[in-house]
Design a protein around this nucleic acid. Structure first.
Lengths: 182, 182
DNA sequence: TTGATTGCAAAGCATTTGCATGCTA
DNA sequence: TAGCATGCAAATGCTTTGCAATCAA
């Protein structure tokens, strides 16, 4: 299993994300849209960034490589990527829309540390099953769901026990990092 | 159990929500704030409305009884109610903040019909337990969570089988009704 | 009388759209 | 060449705040 992943990533080093690019092109063509340099650049940067990104986050990453690209284009391209099934919108409660990889990334839920903003992705088949069962009991046909759990991660729990100075004006703002759980 | 509820509600008919009012007053006084006619009215209308409400929804209900009350006051009073533990903020994915009763309303999750906007409240101790277990496995100390499931409710599934004319411009906007599940 | 409260208007902030110009097919 | 794409600026929608007048304690 582990070896499979390694060999695949080594063999396909040059063609990394070729499947994703193909999917995007297909979507573009099916919808009668056009292939552009901006869309290619935005797709590439999105694909090689594993973190949860807002449209603005991605805009600045793109901006570093090509300052002529506007944020509207990044915004619209993220919508395109979502339509194409490559990206997925997520919200963590700070009133912003984040995007995460969707293609080849199995469904998962999120656990968010309210201290450091760390986001842990996890999956529990048992929870999924119970959700389906609850829905069935209500005659509901489920299409999707969102489970988010907030709390304090292990690292931050340790920090709290130590004496610390909190600078005034320092707010526990949600910053998002991504860690893939089991 | 059932009889208990009935007798309680009959005995306390006149004092309905007296406990909630008491809690609000306590919070007001503890925080050095003031009792006002507007706050009383807003609290009353909030308490006797079981639906999930946005600040604007509540504003219009209040407006019907007293047009002189401003929406800012409703907005700020809802924040107060939330601080006092009487209300709770919820989001259903349409980018609005809804408020629901918190006091004496046990924790529950939401199932939202994407056709008619109906919201079913449900609770599953098994799901709760599994969440705690997952969190424990990651060394996480949970404070709260949000589980929302979208799908099509039983009624709307029946409707889909019948031929229907969809008026152009008719969008499946999320309207929120509340039904308490088991 | 003091200082919290109110309601209006305006500011914030993320998101979305209109439009003239540019560029793909 | 037709019409989609782009980037700027402005509009939108919900939320939040500043401020002068009002009102509870």
């Amino acid at each position: 299993m582990l070896f499979d992943n390694i060999s695949i990533s080594m063999v396909n080093k040059k063609d990394e994300f070729s499947k994703e690019r193909e999917i995007f092109l297909e979507h573009i063509q099916r919808a009668g849209l056009r292939k552009t340099a901006q869309r290619n650049l935005i797709l590439d940067i999105f694909l090689r960034t594993e973190e949860h990104l807002t449209s603005e986050d991605l805009y600045w990453l793109v901006h570093k490589e090509d300052p002529s690209v506007g944020n509207t284009t990044v915004y619209r391209t993220l919508k395109l990527l979502t339509e194409a099934g490559l990206a997925r919108e997520v919200r963590f409660g700070d009133n912003k829309t984040y995007y995460e990889h969707h293609y080849n990334h199995e469904h998962h839920d999120h656990m968010i540390c309210t201290e450091c903003g760390q986001v842990i992705e996890f999956f529990s088949q048992e929870i999924e099953n119970l959700q389906e069962q609850v829905a069935f009991n209500f005659g509901f046909s489920l299409s999707h769901h969102s489970l988010r759990m907030w709390g304090v991660c292990g690292e931050c729990q340790k920090k709290v026990t130590e004496p610390q100075v909190v600078p005034s004006g320092a707010q526990p703002k949600i910053k998002v990092r991504s860690v893939v759980g089991s």
